[in-house]
Nucleic acid binder design. Structure first.
Lengths: 338, 338
DNA sequence: CTGAAAGCGCTAACAG
DNA sequence: CTGTTAGCGCTTTCAG
């Protein structure tokens, strides 16, 4: 385990001062070409690599690190966002720290604290539901922060990247209405979560537009994760007067809803916010509100680097457009088996 | 944008020396309780946070950072591994850097180089296919490295966490054979990838065991991603004498195969390495080789921290067990719709 | 074009 | 129990 070479070692080998090595490493102009190549040779020979820790210790030099906090990096939606951010970070020569809050404000607080101790140059956060004790004004002033998928609560003047939640839900439910349904149920997760609230509002918009008044018995909220959503779907199927179609507000709930329908061998027309790869391969194809989570990450990353680059414009709020994909849209050219 | 407080600021406010502050921050024993609480008050008042960069600059003090390189953090399989690692890292007070190699050795090299510049305490890698120019002996000696999902090529003496690829494939194909199939096709991705090679071997094992000789026309290799896999499945369906069942070697290929069968409205019994949430909700349920990727990450993380903790045992090779899930296993208690 | 000296924020010695 | 000194690896003055 030989010690890692330092600029000092390189300088000694090349017969120059440490400062000249620094100049070569940083591609500074005023270096004699001969000296430069001699130093470069020494660098290559020793396998020297600049210590980022030491570099960023000097004032003004930020760590080439950005931090991402999501609810759960194991959730494909969040990891797709991470992927988009990573691409942008790489273009800017930065690395990405990732951590999961598990939707717990306390964990979010700890993680952000740890990121700050590592002097991240910026932060991208999918905020947890409750008040953000860590994203206090002084934190927000000390480094750029972008909120993705949900705004901060209480609302702060930070950049956001959000989906057209309300409009997407509106259109999905509209689609069911056009098919003649009038008893359309809805299953949502935590009604405190911004996305769920917005999508619920879109559902209500569509009903109102159609002149229908919402039926309390058909609006199920507070069903977290696929297991609880499964129970919710069973409850709907147990109703004396069943709904004729169902709208579900996210990619966890749709899994539970489908499982329940599968168990009961009873399929209701379904519309879901969030797309998934198998949507068109199911027993009954479903209508989905589709969008590109990688693009969300890219937008968030680009906005963050604009701030890191010094932009002081007023907060930017980016809307990511969503598309409705109905069973009729699927693979229109596909013919039957030959 | 006020400057971030340092130990110096805390020391001045508390009327002690900087070293005493350091002692309090690091929970060292020999500090007077009165002094300690006075310092703590100053810390709280200023919102002081130790600068990790500066701390880890001292020799012997490693950065509380570990690095993860996978093929694509947007792939749910890899992000699940990341999630498992993250949990272990947190328990050990470390943060996780993540990056995608896109299966390109050159990018892998760059990413690992960047991680090393940030003085990561350890590295977890899903190695790319070709030779690992970066994971050279001197790198492997300078910090702990764990390989997940695939061993290093050329083989090095590092810890690995691998699936029972060959056995899992063997059992999946065995299952098809027991259903009476004798013309079982196989679709694989890059035959250079370790997991694909092993799973192919398992497929051949099963055929041999059944006294069948492999049919070249039914073994399709080199189909990367779901698009190419879709074409492969079409090719199988175009064969003058079609196979009666198909085994696919990963979670990308199964998507393509299913799409092709769906387009043709022609479903062949299918077995897949890699499970997915919708396996039992499809038009024709399929047989899957199932395992827990989060657990893979946990095992890798725990092994890494054993090394970071100083373990010098010979390389540890952890096998993650896999389970066969057949359509008959699915939800046995579920009854028909009431 | 090149170098010497100072210091970033912190911790390990060694005094007191 | 507490403080002083030195120095981690690097970049920034400011002189040559």
């Amino acid at each position: 385990m030989t010690a890692r070479p330092t600029m000092h070692d390189v300088a000694r080998l090349a017969g120059v001062s440490i400062k000249t090595v620094s100049r070569v490493v940083n591609d500074e102009p005023r270096v004699d070409p001969g000296t430069r190549s001699r130093v470069q040779a020494a660098i290559d020979h020793l396998g020297f690599r600049r210590n980022e820790q030491a570099r960023s210790l000097r004032p003004g030099q930020s760590t080439a690190l950005i931090g991402l906090v999501t609810g759960d990096m194991g959730n494909p939606f969040y990891s797709a966002i991470a992927r988009g951010i990573e691409d942008v970070a790489r273009q800017h020569g930065h690395l990405l720290l990732t951590a999961s809050s598990e939707e717990q404000p306390e964990r979010e607080r700890q993680v952000i604290g740890a990121f700050l101790q590592h002097n991240v140059a910026g932060l991208i956060v999918v905020p947890t539901v409750l008040a953000h004790q860590t994203l206090t004004p002084d934190v927000l002033e000390s480094l750029p922060v972008v909120a993705v998928d949900r705004p901060l609560s209480p609302p702060s003047a930070v950049d956001t990247v959000l989906l057209s939640n309300r409009d997407g839900a509106h259109r999905a439910v509209q689609h069911l209405l056009r098919d003649g349904h009038t008893r359309i149920a809805m299953i949502d997760g935590d009604p405190e979560v911004y996305t769920g609230r917005e999508r619920t509002a879109g559902y209500l918009d569509a009903l109102r537009e159609a002149g229908l008044s919402p039926d309390r018995a058909l609006i199920l909220q507070g069903y977290h994760g696929d297991r609880q959503a499964e129970a919710a779907m069973h409850a709907l199927l147990d109703l004396p007067t069943r709904p004729t179609a169902v709208f579900v507000t996210n990619n966890r709930i749709v899994v539970g809803a489908l499982k329940a329908m599968h168990d009961r061998r009873h399929w209701l027309p379904l519309a879901s916010f969030d797309d998934f790869e198998f949507a068109d391969l199911l027993t009954t194809p479903i209508t989905v509100v589709s969008y590109d989570p990688i693009e969300m990450g890219k937008q968030a990353g680009e906005q963050l680097f604009r701030r890191i680059g010094g932009s002081t414009l007023p907060p930017v709020h980016t809307q990511i457009q969503v598309a409705l994909r109905t069973p009729a849209d699927l693979r229109p050219g596909a013919g039957p088996s030959s």
